[in-house]
Nucleic acid binder design. Structure first.
Length: 924
RNA sequence: GGGUGCUUAGCUCAGCUGGUAGAGCGUCGCCCUUACAAGGCGAAGGUCGCAGGAUCGUAACCUGCAGCACCCACCA
């Protein structure tokens, strides 16, 4: 084995092998099914840190359950991501001087498919590099033929049950993308605006009313002015008419409780076609709806000719200017207001009157609420259920039609009169409604919201509406791992659709991960220039390439210099290669509950070092254990250390199993890290050296240690495998044979069970004592700056017979690990030499000072120790002196404290005695 | 206007059902000791945001406040 672990070549080779062997596919081995469906990333997208993070957790679960013998499927696939993908291709066209409209629908779609074919493999290539064990043979795409069929089937069935309808109403309209959006796609942002106070003259010339508005241009579409019915200032005006300025239309003054008399002037202009509240109010009062905008948000022909064709913002200036000129603006206030923007385009949205398809959602939401209430699906952490309930209980009908080309075309056809027919195909529609070939039908031009198909993902990927064996086995899936940002978009909708069409929840658990942020806690985004490609952490990237990557293709190129500067500052040397396993372990270790993760490259470096540590531990084992060790009939005997490490391993495994059952990846990672580094490497490997390298031990004991060494290394690889698949496979391939274990791959080997490593309290107590002894001596050495290669003598003052026996038993280990030349006993009454002192239970350890230790330094050191012991002693005494405590605390707690008191008193007394002696020496 | 999360060592974070405050990184000291200098050994460093309360006892439970972050929401 190489001296330093070099991940890149090893990782690529291993993954290709796993995949070629078909080991990612579910295997029937008698275990229960376990299934995760991947949140399908955008097919043309690239893998970002959030994906890498979430996929790591999914892969940990997948590999863990697979190793436990469960029939495990991680279902991969990608999403067509309607708007996002269409926008990308349109931008490409724009760069070529072409447009979607000029190309035509068919050619445009061909172009998108072409782009998908070209860029669609990026994500899967990245996923392979990160070791994710998805079953590629089942990869799906939301626009595959069978998934599209599922979409149509769902649409038609919902329509047939009157759960989908078409209607003309106000919708959130994106005037740049020229499509309707759902409520969820609206980003409400607070921005600075103005509040214009306009004078509307009464038609009878008896004065005017002042209305306040943030959108003066919409006055051209006003059809009323409303006041609160209780508002005594205006009550007498209700029923009168106003002459709408610039337009001349007569509009009524109406009363409606919606109006807040205390805001603005207490009078509200009503524009039913361009405001959600006004729309509702207009319906209540039978007001006309005058649409004054074109789809691109310019003024249309329903306004006076001089305004026609003006963009909404130009029109605003014109309207304000004309009103101003006419003396109809009372005042203009600054005003903080909420502006709705499209989440993709960033354009200010318009409430716009159009025909759209809607899902009647309340009947679907009710059972989905019930499923979470009853715990059939559980959120982890559970507080996310509150967020879910909050939204679900106030849910509104879902606008599912989009005026795009890229997506699932709505299965509705219209005759010449505009009557719509919904069916699985034109043929079905004609047959069902008796429409022969002479009746011209044209299919609805719109497509469905991307999330409509995503909502079906847990069953559409498994062959629904057919009754497939996959559905029977893997539905409901075990857990969904995703971010809070798509609880509404996706999680809730999957629950609704799953319950509706499969009759059961789509997943048992929903594990909500935190967000991956940059080193300053900022959200990562291209425009901030703080994104990191996970593969750059894995394989490394030099500074120039990183700068280029971050500044290329910016929406706002003027940000490039700042981004470059920040990047050069944060990564002056670029990013070193850390390997996949280190990155994955980092993600797991940072995945605690309820917290975003602030990504810290230093942490990855730490876990890369951990990989190297593990690697070198494996090298040590290969040097110590000969290939022919295993399988021999020769007797073997376990040393205390052998028994100890097995016992410790069992305890750590128990922690890991509990942690993973509760999605505490950080706990699992910590347990394995600490076991590997602190217990296995720092203690156990060191303890094997005296056995294997010195003369004292019997051949049977040496054999026992060699076998334990090999067995523990092997089992440790299996325990670590879900977190660090590559290095563990590599080590396992090289060393499992030493433990008499074989197999084609570690990924199908059984996950170690805690029960196979039962606790051994005797060994744990003995080694704990041994560690205490060694640490005590090392502390003296460290604090006295004794050179590591210098061996020191140790005297044990008046040890009991038991202690003497113990020391004799462990003498070799103590001497070797603490750098002791020789341990001797100081009999009662014998002269106590000048020495540095440590207290270990009832034992006083002395390191004689001759030439080694400076009396002043030891005096200072003892003083510190004594002060610490006294401080604790005081605290313990005070607590035990509290009658209430003794009376009320559980007896076990009191007893423990009493023991500690005795211990502390002994320690303090020992230090005190020694301090007196050292001071005497000093003054002498 | 509702709601959620967070506040613990210089930094990033653990701390499960209340019973002597932990880790990683960083810092300091001594070491290239034959698995590993991407390492070994030792050390320093914390009024657990603030204020009340319940308790024998709280970083942890309750209440209030402050700060930070985020989500939802039709006040023109």
């Amino acid at each position: 084995m190489q001296k330093v672990y070099a991940p890149p070549d090893i990782e690529r080779r291993i993954y290709a092998h796993w995949e070629s062997q078909g080991w990612f596919a579910p295997r029937h081995a008698g275990g229960a099914p376990y299934c995760i469906v991947i949140p399908p990333p955008n097919v043309t997208g690239t893998l970002h840190m959030g994906h890498a993070f979430q996929h790591t957790l999914m892969d940990v679960l997948t590999r863990y359950h697979r190793m436990r013998g469960e029939e495990t499927l991680w279902q991969p696939g990608t999403d067509h991501a309607g708007i996002a993908t269409q926008m990308v291709v349109e931008r490409q066209l724009e760069a070529e001087g072409a447009t979607r409209a000029r190309l035509g629908r068919e050619a445009f779609l061909a172009r998108v498919w072409q782009w998908k074919a070209h860029s669609g493999g990026t994500i899967s290539a990245q996923m392979r590099r990160l070791g994710f064990s998805v079953d590629w043979s089942r990869e799906r795409f939301t626009m595959d033929a069978d998934l599209s069929r599922a979409v149509i089937e769902v649409f038609v069935r919902l329509y047939d049950e009157n759960l989908i309808y078409r209607g003309k109403r106000l919708v959130n309209w994106d005037p740049v993308l020229l499509t309707a959006l759902s409520d969820l796609e609206v980003q409400a942002e607070e921005e600075d605006g103005q509040l214009w106070h306009l004078r509307y003259p009464l038609a009878d010339g008896s004065g005017h009313m002042v209305v306040a508005t943030t959108r003066p241009e919409t006055m051209l579409g006003d059809t009323a002015v409303a006041v609160n019915p209780e508002d005594t200032r205006y009550r007498h005006l209700v029923g009168k008419r106003l002459k709408l300025p610039l337009v001349g239309r007569l509009i009524p003054v109406i009363a409606d409780a919606y109006v807040d008399a205390t805001f603005g002037s207490g009078c509200v202009k009503i524009t039913p076609a361009h405001d959600f509240n006004d729309y509702e109010l207009g319906l209540r009062h039978n007001l006309p709806q005058i649409n004054i905008l074109t789809p691109a948000a310019a003024l249309n022909d329903n306004v006076p000719p001089r305004f026609r064709g003006l963009d909404r913002f130009v029109a605003r200036e014109r309207v304000v200017a004309e009103l101003q000129a006419a003396g109809l603006i009372e005042r203009i206030d600054k005003h903080r207001m909420v502006i709705p923007r499209g989440d993709r385009s960033g354009a200010i949205l318009e409430p716009y009157l159009t025909d759209q398809w809607y899902v009647r959602i309340a009947p679907l939401a009710a059972p989905a609420i019930g499923a979470v209430e009853s715990g059939r699906t559980q959120f982890v952490p559970e507080n996310w259920a509150r967020t879910y309930f909050e939204w679900m209980r106030n849910i509104k009908d879902w606008c599912v039609s989009r005026q795009l080309w890229w997506g699932h075309r709505i299965p509705a056809w219209y005759d010449a009169a505009g009557k719509s027919y919904v069916g699985r195909s034109e043929e079905e529609v004609r047959a069902k409604h008796g429409l022969d070939a002479t009746v011209a039908l044209r299919q609805d031009a719109d497509v469905l919201d991307t999330w409509f198909s995503s909502a079906l993902w847990p069953f559409s990927t498994m062959g629904w509406p057919e009754k497939t064996p996959e559905l029977a086995k893997f539905y409901p899936t075990s857990v969904l791992v995703t971010g809070f940002d798509i609880i509404f978009f996706w999680v809730a909708r999957m629950l609704m659709m799953g319950l509706k069409f499969m009759g059961d929840v789509p997943f048992r658990d929903v594990y909500i991960t935190g967000l991956v942020r940059d080193e300053h806690g900022e959200k990562m985004s291209k425009s901030k220039g703080n994104v990191i490609d996970p593969l750059d952490i894995v394989d490394g990237i030099d500074l120039e390439a990183l700068v280029a990557k971050r500044t290329r293709g910016l929406m706002q190129p003027q940000l490039a210099p700042a981004i470059e500067k920040a990047t050069r500052k944060t990564y002056p040397d670029g990013i070193a290669a850390h390997g996949t396993d280190a990155l994955r372990f980092t993600f797991a270790a940072l995945a605690s509950a309820n917290r975003d993760i602030r990504f810290d490259l230093q942490r990855v470096a730490g876990y890369r070092n951990f990989c190297n540590k593990l690697w070198n531990a494996a090298r040590f084992v290969t040097l110590m254990v000969p290939a022919e060790e295993h399988g021999g009939a020769a007797p073997a005997e376990l040393s205390m250390a052998d028994r100890w490490i097995r016992s410790r391993f069992g305890r750590r495994l128990a922690e890991v199993h509990i942690a993973l059952a509760g999605y505490r990846f950080d706990f699992a990672a910590a347990a394995l890290y600490e076991f590997t580094w602190d217990e296995f490497c720092s203690w156990y490997l060191e303890l094997t050296k005296p056995t294997l390298q010195s003369e004292g031990a019997s051949e049977a004991t040496r054999r026992g240690t060699r076998r334990t060494l090999a067995a523990m290394l092997e089992a440790l690889q299996r325990a670590l495998h879900p977190l660090m698949p590559f290095i563990t496979e590599e080590i396992w391939q090289k060393t499992a044979v030493l433990a008499g274990r074989g197999g084609a791959t570690i990924m199908l080997a059984p996950y170690p069970l805690a029960a196979d490593y039962p606790a051994d309290p005797e060994a744990e107590a003995e080694i704990a004592w041994l560690q205490g002894f060694i640490l005590a001596v090392r502390q003296i050495r460290g604090e006295m700056d004794i050179h590591p290669s210098k061996r020191v003598p140790v005297l044990v003052k008046e040890p009991s017979a038991d202690a003497q026996a113990r020391i004799e038993r462990q003498r070799t280990y103590l001497e070797r690990l603490a750098g002791i030349e020789n341990i001797a006993f100081l009999e009662r009454g014998a002269a106590v030499p000048q020495a540095a002192t440590a207290m270990l239970g009832e034992l006083t350890l002395l390191v004689p000072m001759a030439n080694l230790i400076d009396a002043a330094a030891e005096s200072e050191r003892l003083g510190k120790r004594l002060a610490k012991a006294r401080q604790e002693l005081d605290r313990t005494r005070a607590q035990l002196g509290n009658g209430n405590f003794v009376a009320n605390a559980p007896p076990a707690v009191v007893a423990t404290l009493r023991e500690r008191l005795v211990e502390l008193e002994r320690t303090a007394a020992g230090f005190e005695a020694q301090l007196t002696r050292v001071r005497a020496l000093q003054s002498a």
